[in-house]
């Protein structure tokens, strides 16, 4: 440890500017471990369980990438990142991949020099109110006090939307979701606004969920997705296509249970290409033939991941909505594997 201290000091003295390595794939393979930036704790998306193992919808994507690249979905080191530290950690090369319910915006993509390689969850900002407030639409919230987390895009969205609809509101600043829930229950604010997925989870854990409703208006677009650094396009491709392999697997009915069987029996040439039975798609990205097969086998397809972590059978109970397959009226649409 001492040694690292002094090496570190020396390095600072030498002012060696850190430039993240350009070949993330080689780094990850050499390390034998994927370093994945996650949320410090977000219900259903990323949280350690009682034994300290990270679980969740975002975490599953980290696992899938590890399975594709390293062959083992458990070879992931999770770095919990706060809203403030996430992008710097990624830019400085502390993490290989950031899957931390981060909204894809223009400035993050361009100004911060990141690539949002896919959208694994289409979210949007909504409102939750007490039923006895008698409000059925967000447009009736004129003059309401609204609980809102400070320093987030939700705060800006709220201001924009109320201005556009020419109604007034009083913001009540809160620090985190637990406080928002508390203030709403205590009646300190009339409405609580946050991402709709978070509102659903919050409502599910209230003592009397039947007395609260989530208003139908979704006032913003929050496409959440995995983020990588600019400049290492091959690594971006790997993350992107690992995700699309999971989406395509659901479309073609490949599940973690039947993936082996499908690989031997299928006649569909695209499934054969995905599972590495025919052609060698993985080689274009520096991976082996069975990268996608391993990802599907070890973490399941997109639908399975959704159902296991945040779907309607879980206490969070999110409907697929925008996140359904394009064939079901949703937006999840994997480009062809060809």
């Amino acid at each position: 440890m001492k040694k690292t201290v002094f090496l570190g000091t020396l390095a600072v003295a030498g002012a060696l500017a850190g430039v993240a390595s350009a070949d993330t794939l080689a780094d990850v393979k050499a390390r034998g471990e994927l370093i994945c930036g996650t949320n410090t704790g977000l219900t259903g998306f990323a949280a350690p369980d009682a034994s300290g193992v990270y679980q969740g919808f975002d975490v599953a994507l980290c696992k899938a990438v590890a399975a594709a690249v390293l062959g083992d979905s458990t070879k992931v080191k999770y770095v919990p990142l706060t809203g403030e530290t996430r992008f710097t950690a990624l830019a400085a090369g502390e993490v290989d991949l950031l899957v931390r319910n981060s909204t894809w915006t223009f400035s993050r993509d361009t100004d911060l020099k990141f690539d949002f390689v896919a959208v694994n969850y289409y979210d949007g900002q909504g409102f939750m109110v007490k039923k006895d407030l008698g409000v059925t639409s967000a447009k009736e919230l004129d003059g309401a006090t609204i609980c809102i987390q400070t320093g987030t895009t939700t705060e800006l969205n709220l201001a924009d939307w109320f201005k556009a609809n020419n109604i007034a509101y009083t913001p009540v600043n809160i620090a985190d979701d637990a406080e928002g829930q508390r203030q709403l229950v205590a009646g300190s604010c009339d409405a609580y606004t946050a991402d709709a997925s978070g509102l659903a989870a919050t409502r599910a854990t209230l003592a009397d969920p039947e007395n609260y409703i989530i208003l139908p208006e979704i006032i913003s677009k929050e496409p959440l997705g995995p983020v990588v650094r600019h400049g290492d396009n091959n690594w971006g491709d790997i993350v992107r296509w690992t995700f699309y392999a999971l989406v395509a697997a659901e479309e073609f009915g490949i599940t973690s249970a039947n993936v082996e069987e499908t690989a031997t029996t299928t006649q569909n040439p695209e499934i054969k290409r995905i599972l590495g039975v025919e052609g060698d798609l993985g080689a274009f990205m520096g991976l082996d033939k069975e990268w996608a097969k391993r990802a599907i086998a070890q973490v399941g397809n997109y639908g399975e991941i959704f159902a296991a972590n945040i779907g309607e059978s879980t206490p969070i109970g999110l409907a697929r909505g925008l996140n359904a397959q394009w064939t079901q009226g949703g937006l999840q649409y994997a480009p062809p594997f060809r």
């Binding site: 690292t4 090496l7 570190g8 390095a11 850190g18 780094d27 710097t88 400085a92 502390e94």
Partner: peptide, 8 residues
Amino acid sequence: QYFLPPNT
């Protein structure tokens, strides 16, 4: 992190 050599 920015001052340290990469991968330190």
